[in-house]
Design a protein around this nucleic acid. Structure first.
Ligand SMILES: NC(=O)c1ccc[n+]([C@@H]2O[C@H](COP(=O)([O-])OP(=O)(O)OC[C@H]3O[C@@H](n4cnc5c(N)ncnc54)[C@H](O)[C@@H]3O)[C@@H](O)[C@H]2O)c1
Ligand SMILES: NC(=O)c1ccc[n+]([C@@H]2O[C@H](COP(=O)([O-])OP(=O)(O)OC[C@H]3O[C@@H](n4cnc5c(N)ncnc54)[C@H](O)[C@@H]3O)[C@@H](O)[C@H]2O)c1
Lengths: 215, 215
DNA sequence: GTGCGCTTGTGAATTCGATCACGAGTTCCG
DNA sequence: CGGAACTCGTGATCGAATTCACAAGCGCAC
């Protein structure tokens, strides 16, 4: 019964498949094929089949996959039945956008609390999210059963915020600050670095149009 | 003089190295080592050396790298001397946060314009960014020399926005919507999908704590 | 100038992921 | 029932990225 190890690269694609499948189900499609899924997910069909094969999923040869069943399988693999409460750290421009976003709650990641150093904010409720002082973090995490911490503080405060989250028992962190935070090995950090993304795009732009002479 | 092809994985790390190097320079460090850079960038030292070797960079054996020189080399490889104007499409919660963010301009990615369908917004200026109607996109892109388009519209409008951007001549897109947009092969899309990031964290949380029995 | 400790640069080995290619199962039709 | 059309599952192959491991270069001390 033990699901074999699912490769990281596959895990990263499962949410995309799940979205496509949900859309197909909403469209009333009862079955689908690796070709159709590949098209929707922007990958190639062989990859879809291999990915799904890691789930121990069984499509039907000559027919395709049953959409409802596949939704179930992928959901189970991702554990989307679970709800993982989120705390947002730093309610600036970005933090507010995140706190306000309804899409996360729909997917099982409700923002249940926030922290900020700004004395004006502490004690208030923004978009339905109560703002606490950072020194209350551990308390809030325990009370709300927070599983994931989001860092949306300025870069200078990112490491200390990560330390607080770790101390509070959080083992999953989504970091938006343009820094590399260090945490114990049993804590997973995913960094979403928008400047880096832009710089990668910039690199390719420069590469594709190289008729300039450099200094 | 032709710089050899730099692997994608390396390109993605260069911005992180550049940040670390800039910090080191600010700290007054004249030289550094692959060990120190590795520590700061959160990777291992062999990877740092291999990455830098693709730049044709020459550190000094027994000594390390000259920080100023390395800043120069990495900057040149990334083309950070260039400025790539950005347009933000969709000025909702996320779009406003992006438009307001100063960090991008500092790194050579000024937000020079925005588009939105909301008639209330069109014609106004938000955080110094003029908001235009989507049908003015091509015009604005040409006038401002926009190089990169950011999609921060609702998912339902993402594809049509991408089409508009492509039609306007944009070849680099950063997409925040939870969708896969399709574009011609010569256009690069980088998707930043926050829900997917959370779902990946959720997957690992579930995997690390598996004492439950499933349906 | 000789030796020692330090650090780079890089071939080689390894791991991981993507892709290919095809055997096998399914449906349908005549 | 036979064959054609379709689609999955997967071993095999290919390629990219990571990691290893060490020779070679550098600087300092004596
Ligand atoms: N706004 C964007 O579009 C954007 C884009 C890319 C990256 N980022 C990064 O995201 C982070 C947040 O950006 P922002 O624009 O929201 O910044 P911001 O300055 O608007 O907000 C930062 C918030 O964090 C709070 N804060 C400061 N120190 C704190 C601490 N120790 N603990 C808790 N809260 C603290 C501040 O009071 C403020 O409310 C930054 O690291 C920024 O570089 C933002
Ligand atoms: N807010 C977040 O924290 C967050 C997090 C993750 C993902 N996202 C995604 O980012 C996107 C934007 O999120 P948001 O919270 O800012 O949404 P939002 O609803 O606040 O804003 C969307 C904006 O886009 C505009 N718009 C709609 N159709 C348009 C079109 N065709 N052309 C141009 N503009 C158009 C709307 O007028 C509105 O101003 C969504 O796809 C959302 O799923 C947002």
């Amino acid at each position: 019964m033990a699901t074999a190890r699912i490769p990281e690269a596959t895990v990263a694609r499962l949410p995309v498949y799940l979205r496509s499948l949900t859309e197909l189900a909403a469209d009333g499609q009862a079955t689908t094929s690796s070709d159709i899924l590949a098209e929707r997910a922007g990958v190639n069909a062989a990859k879809v089949r291999k990915d799904l094969s890691y789930l121990g999923t069984h499509g039907t040869r000559g027919v395709g996959y049953d959409v409802r069943h596949l939704v179930f399988e992928v959901s189970r693999a991702l554990g989307v039945a679970n709800t993982w409460p989120v705390i947002v750290c730093g309610l600036g421009n970005l933090g507010r956008a995140l706190a306000n976003h309804t899409g996360f709650t729909e997917r099982g990641f409700p923002v249940v609390a926030a922290i900020d150093v700004d004395a004006e904010l502490v004690g208030t409720t923004i978009d339905g999210v109560a703002v606490h002082s950072p020194d209350k973090l551990a308390e809030v995490v325990a009370a709300e059963g927070v599983a994931i911490g989001v860092i949306a503080t300025p870069a200078a405060a990112a490491q200390e915020t990560a330390d607080l989250l770790v101390a509070a028992g959080i083992r999953s962190i989504l970091d938006f600050s343009p820094t590399v935070v260090s945490v114990p090995p049993d804590v997973e950090v995913r960094a979403v670095d928008l400047s880096t993304e832009l710089q990668i795009l910039g690199f390719h732009l420069q590469r594709d149009l190289p008729p300039e002479v450099n200094l």
